[in-house]
Design a protein around this nucleic acid. Structure first.
Lengths: 201, 201, 201, 201
DNA sequence: CGGTAAGCGAGACGGTACGTCGTGTCTTTCG
DNA sequence: CGAAAGACACGACGTACCGTCTCGCTTACCG
């Protein structure tokens, strides 16, 4: 069997490509994005792109995910109070979806996933799933702490939060807002928590 | 003001285009869809496409929405029992998202909306918004009947249901399921209903 | 057999079409000319064009020939002196080929003839041939008058005069000139005339 | 100044395009010729055509000129006898104009020149002018040898020969013939030669 | 430390699709 | 009822990208 020498890849070039991709996505959207454009904007040969990524959806996915991960550090906190932590996390997400810097990237990610089922699968495994897993894990800690109902469908809850935000982003009526997120939280908490008192709400 | 004579358009041609678009979307996905392909498959000149629709996203939107509306008659029922009606509606939606006939169309619609903000806006006004309005209206009837809490953010609830399903569709892990939808419903009902008893749960 | 009602064609419309064709040809050349353009410019339905002419080459031919015939009345004079008459005729032709009004029309005619052999044939019969026949007839009178050599190939002479001008027009180097025509005439006269004296040459 | 690396073009592709162009011109004429058709017939992308030629007229010109040059080697001979040489050259030209292989190409060249003044200009400089210059040069040698009259307008003579042939080709009445060319030669020789005796004519 | 194989910028290439324009036919509407 | 208006099927236009393929040049590893 041939000795597979580890391929040497220039880090600066790699970074330049991801940066160019994000810049172009912010300016013009996913369908306007082109491999030629990325290559030109990054000052890179097209072959270099195709050496490392098989498709536009793929570069987009990596570029956007890298950008979002850099932005979304500390996915969900753990202060001991599940209700506060959920609210903090939700507001972090809202901030991301609202930011003029990141919203186009999320839209692009959605377009890539809607377009290409293979890329969607990969995205799910490397991005969506870990993210959701973190939220579910935090909720599971809440079950152990007696704050969260044991029988609750934790994955469904995580889906509902993120899905609602995404839907609002896509419908493009500028309605992704902290208020709406809080409304959703108020709806979900009674079903989620063991001892829910409608105190100051 | 000049009397704008209404442009006369051939109905059969119009229908053939929408049919061809849906067929091609089912077979190959949004990004594989081409105006050339639609025209050829519908036995129509390309100019006829561009005469009536400005873009691929636009034809896609009309074709898919027409298909979904035809499929989704009676958006949400009104039997008097809000809990049953919500479950019925959710299951109808799940059936749509799961159907091999309609799922690709919804993915295409999502791709079109993620791509083109103008089309997203139009889609929202002609499709998403009326749909959600119907659900919200049904919930409002529930408030009048004393079944639903008056303070609940009804639009947030509708977003959560549809958004969760959409997110599952996009992540492409075959997980859009009635079970997950029921799990979500169990989570939401306590926050939504005035008298919620955790009977069989 | 169906009673063939004699088709009544409106003279004003007919004229408007020919005028529009000439105008457009002068402004933009043969390949830029379009049936749509002619119809619009003449304030006429496209069907009216196709009712009377089968093709663009055809309208062009009729329009241009009509224009040239109107301009070139009295093809070749007969003063009794063949040498003078030939020079007069040649200068008339040069004036036509040089005129910014007619040169584009001649170019268009050439394009139409070079393109479409059928139209070329028709053009020859209705335009080139009668024109040449007139010149040949004038030369034949010269033979009778003893001024022209009996054995000369009269048609070849006519071809040479017109062909040389046409070639200069096509090569587009602005060289269609009276001087060049006179040079040609000086070359041909010795072979054409019975008593040629190289007086002022 | 930046060293302009010469663009590398594939010779086989270039040749395939010119061949395809000539083939299509022979089969269907200039206006039927299409860039799409050339590309398809040559097994080449359309962009490759547009990379190297700006227009249909341009490819046509290069293809035809290359074909004619290949066919018309030794434009005009020099045996010392100008009269014989002219006749030889004329008969070579007639053969070209009569050949079913080359006649459509010449017609196409004429159409291209009549259509597009820019291309006509380029054609003149790269094809017509050098060709005529060769004939004029041969005639000038005749002047030096005392065979040709010093005052004769040599360019006019060349124009007359070629123009007459072209005119006959365009009028499409199948009349391009050696006889007609000889008739023309007999007309021109007295004006061209110093000592012209009507011996065997 | 010099050879060599890879990564790399550049860009020509065979293709597909774009969105527009023109052709020639057909239908609808109006004067 | 004849002509304008214009929708329509068709197909070419010239452009933009796609993904593959050489070209030379640079760069790092290995013998």
């Amino acid at each position: 069997m041939a000795q597979q020498r580890p391929r040497r890849r220039r880090a600066a070039t790699h970074q330049a490509i991801l940066d160019a991709t994000r810049t172009l996505l912010r300016n013009a959207g996913y369908s306007q994005l082109s491999m030629d454009g990325i290559a030109a904007h990054a000052g890179v040969g097209k072959q270099t792109l195709y050496r490392w990524w098989p498709s536009k959806a793929s570069v987009t996915a990596e570029a956007v995910v890298a950008g979002l991960i850099a932005a979304g550090r500390e996915i969900i906190p753990d202060t001991g109070d599940i209700s506060t932590d959920l609210r903090t996390w939700l507001h972090t997400c809202v901030a991301l979806f609202v930011s003029p810097e990141h919203a186009p990237l999320i839209r692009a990610l959605t377009a890539a996933a809607a377009d290409d089922r293979g890329e969607a699968q990969r995205l799910y495994q490397h991005f969506t799933e870990p993210h959701q897993a973190a939220v579910v894990a935090r909720l599971r800690l809440g079950i152990n702490a007696g704050q969260v109902r044991p029988g609750a469908d934790l994955a469904a809850a995580a889906d509902a939060f993120v899905g609602a935000l995404l839907l609002q982003l896509l419908t493009a009526n500028e309605s992704v807002s902290a208020e709406r997120a809080d409304g959703l939280l108020r709806l979900m908490l009674p079903g989620l928590l063991t001892d829910w008192a409608p105190h100051a709400q």
